[in-house]
Amino acid sequence: MNEYQKYLLKLYITGHTARSERAIKNLRNICAEDLGGKYEMRVIDILERPQLAEDEKILATPTLIKALPPPLRRIIGDLSDTEKVLVGLDLLPIDEK
């Protein structure tokens, strides 16, 4: 990973519920504001693709997995606490949370 840091973010949701939509919206905002254009965001509805939930051993939804860059992180919830999400994405030092 010596090129410019690209974020690969996978958001797992169970159906398009209000909570799922909230998580998607929150994530989009964070990406737009803090990640510039350096990200790839995938939304995975496990109702449609249950095997993917099995593969990643997803327990709760919404779950955001930061697949890249390392370290691997999981953020559970509707991502309403922006600061916490930023900590999880290593965009804020941990002691600030």
Binding site: T14, I46, A53, I58, A60, T61, P62, I75, I76, S80
Partner: peptide, 16 residues
């Protein structure tokens, strides 16, 4: 590392 922020459900468990 798992970080929890905001509401969630265990829908994935049930689906699996």
């Amino acid at each position: 590392d798992v970080i929890e922020t905001g509401e969630f459900d265990l829908g994935a468990l049930l689906v699996r």
